[in-house]
Simulated assay, not measured.
Amino acid sequence: MALVAGGADRLFGLIERYGIDCDARRSGWLQPAHTPGRAEPTASLATQWTMVGAPAAAVGPAEMSERLGTAAYFGGWEHRGGGHINPYAFTLGLARAAAAEGVRIFEQSPVRRLSRTGDLWSAETPAGRVESSKVVLATAAYSGDLWPERRRSIVPVTSYQAATEPLGALAGRILPLDEAASDTRMDLHFFRKDRDGRLVSGGALAVQAAAARRLPTLVARRLRALFPDLPDRPMPYFWGGRIAMTIDRLPHLHRRSDGLSVWIGCNGRGLALACALAPVLADAVEGLPDEDLGLRPTPPQSLPFHFLLARFARMILPWYRFRDSREV
């Protein structure tokens, strides 16, 4: 937990250090309880986070309603060190900062194959190859078969997001302190605003067909249940990507004696988590002993029936939604 607790500090520290223009708002993060039965255990999470130095506190139902702009929740907790950013703008800004410090970035050159001859690895691309004594895979659910055992240790899941048109004056009544929120449902509901007053949310689909039409409709319906004053209009902005899920929902670090290192398993929390794990991965590549690393390396564990899991794991969503609806 201590490793994750410093993730937001590192993320916003990088933004400040390199002057990255990515709509950064370190205005806090809320986790509201979606049922009365979830209120007490959710609020108790604040105590756990304060034990590792996080600026966390329980939030009662009335205050939570004011800060969300909806009475649909039953209290919860806050992390005052959290916030939200534009992830794409952050990625571009971080790439520019790395290039300014001498890092060479090659776009449109996916590695198709990794092989090792003698003391060197060879990374083959459609246009050529690069040789090195060490290789780091930090490509999450997009790693392909570069390390087959690692691929079989995670389940790739497609996650989508959508955004409304700018809400004008209504935006001031939803998340009035410009915080971000994600609730306690198994089928997570989350939302934030961008700098132009759009409401951004998202989710997953059990069936991917017609996602660009169906997902915004689903999300708009959820948002209007929380915020009845939202206009009944389609959400015009839609995007998505794949995330790497692990069975224990925790990140994993893998390191081989031949110079291949991997971290995997952001489980949908890749922004701050990747920033927190970057120095750990650097230490692993430099050869720091396992016991001294912030995350202990483990060998990848292939999941039984991975072929089926990778294709049908999303079908658990209806069960999640049923469980959410049955909670007291």
Rank of each mutant, 00 (worst) to 15 (best):
R150F: 05
S153G: 04
I154T: 14
I154M: 12
P156V: 08
V157P: 02
T158Q: 07
Y160C: 01
E165M: 09
L167P: 08
L170S: 02
P176H: 04
P176G: 02
P176N: 04
A180G: 10
R185F: 05
H189W: 09
H189F: 14
H189Q: 10
R192G: 00
K193N: 04
D196K: 04
R198V: 03
S201Y: 01
S201K: 00
G203V: 05
A206N: 09
A209C: 04
A211P: 01
A212W: 13
R213Q: 14
R214T: 06
L218W: 02
V219T: 09
V219C: 03
A220M: 10
L226I: 06
F227N: 03
L230T: 04
R233H: 07
R233A: 15
P236T: 00
Y237H: 14
F238I: 01
F238P: 01
F238G: 00
G240Y: 07
G240P: 04
A244F: 08
H254N: 07
D258C: 11
G259T: 10
V262F: 15
G265R: 15
C266M: 12
G268Q: 05
G268V: 02
A272Y: 12
L273I: 13
A274Q: 13
C275A: 14
C275W: 12
A276C: 12
A278W: 12
P279Q: 13
A282Q: 15
D290V: 14
D292V: 05
